[in-house]
């Protein structure tokens, strides 16, 4: 508390807007009176600007791991570093104000307008009114809600709109790190897909290091640059890209968790354009898809046409071909 750097928070004003790495170093969390640890020797690094999805069955400690970062839960041993500095060395309040926090139930303050909700942390940080209003407006633009929403109350918004505001509120002070605890889990499938897509495009603009907790492997594949699979007892089963997890699960637990259709899931990660050999010409009558189509859809087209070779087109002109055998290989490990 006496250290002036502590008052600044992990990033301080100068680092605002810059993404920072999050590193777990041999983190263990034991609750008193429980034999099994909730988190067992967890080590992993999320590189700056990447999204790490924590997945696993209930009791795997996903949420516990996430809450260790903003010290809603304190580790029993080990350390967590943000941008190379231990979170344990900061004042808890300043640490949390530098970390965006989004939860499934949103938790908007029902007695405050949307504008006041978004402006909560900037107000506590002492920003002046104009700056807060300006920031609130820009955040509403970012989450694709009309600026007039600033004057409404949370009860006047739909679930999807509320979670958009939850996102905007978490982004308000431009934190380098975001923690998201099943943020879209309570939304209906259509709204969820919509807001997932929006968050993905928004991430390109804002570049945050994100820890994203979900129990839904499909969501993790869609949202995560990296996926960490936790097994019951809080041990890390596997950490890697979606492609690595789907193509090369380390054991039956991970293979089960990513699903028996992991081959197909893996195909949906890549487009036919990536696999197509531009020099090859498809035989006449071969089914044709555009280069941006996923391999999964390409496979489906091939199967439906009962063909062996798929023609790939770019802007309507032939740009090579993909064979059934190549797709099969791409799906396998």
């Amino acid at each position: 508390m006496t250290d002036p750097a502590t008052q600044e928070g992990p990033v301080g004003a100068s680092h605002r807007g810059e993404a920072l790495a999050i590193e777990f170093r041999h983190v263990t969390k034991r609750y008193p009176g429980q034999d099994a640890p909730a988190i067992d020797d967890l080590s992993l690094t999320v590189p700056p600007g990447e999204t790490c999805c924590l997945v696993g069955p209930s009791g795997g400690g996903k949420t516990t791991a996430m809450k260790l970062v903003n010290r809603l839960i304190e580790p029993t041993s080990g350390d967590i570093l943000i941008g190379g500095r231990s979170v344990l060395t900061y004042d808890v309040t300043t640490l949390r104000r530098d970390i965006g926090y989004v939860i499934q139930q949103v938790g908007l303050f029902p007695h405050m307008t949307i504008g006041a909700n978004i402006g909560t942390i900037p107000r506590l940080l002492g920003w002046d009114k104009e700056r807060i209003a300006e920031r609130t407006g820009r955040l509403l633009d970012l989450v694709r809600l009309d600026r007039s929403y600033a004057k409404r109350y949370p009860a006047q918004l739909s679930g999807g709109q509320q979670q958009r505001i939850g996102l905007a509120r978490a982004l308000a002070a431009d934190p380098p790190v975001m923690l998201m605890d099943e943020p879209f889990g309570a939304l209906d499938p259509i709204t969820r897909a919509e807001i997932q897509d929006e968050f993905l495009s928004l991430e390109n603009e804002i570049r945050k290091t994100v820890i994203f907790v979900t129990h839904d492997i499909d969501e993790a594949i869609k949202m995560g640059d990296k996926i960490a699979v936790l097994r019951p007892g809080g041990r890390l089963a596997q950490y890697g890209s979606a492609d690595e997890l789907l193509g090369d699960p380390v054991d039956d637990f991970v293979a089960d968790f990513v699903g028996a259709d992991r081959g197909l899931k893996r195909l949906s990660l890549r487009s036919v354009g990536e696999l197509a050999d531009p020099g090859r010409e498809a035989p006449p009558g071969a089914p044709s898809v555009s280069a941006g189509t996923s391999l999964r859809v390409g496979l489906s087209v091939l199967l439906a046409a009962n063909a062996e070779v798929l023609e790939v087109t770019k802007e309507g002109r032939p740009a090579g071909a993909v064979t059934l055998a190549e797709i099969r290989e791409a799906a396998g490990s």
Binding site: Y101, I121, L179
Partner: peptide, 18 residues
């Protein structure tokens, strides 16, 4: 006060007094 409201406030960095 809904528990999620309290949880969000705490996680965002409001002190117990705030």
């Amino acid at each position: 006060v809904p528990p999620e409201v309290r949880a969000a406030a705490l996680g965002m960095g409001l002190t117990p007094g705030q």
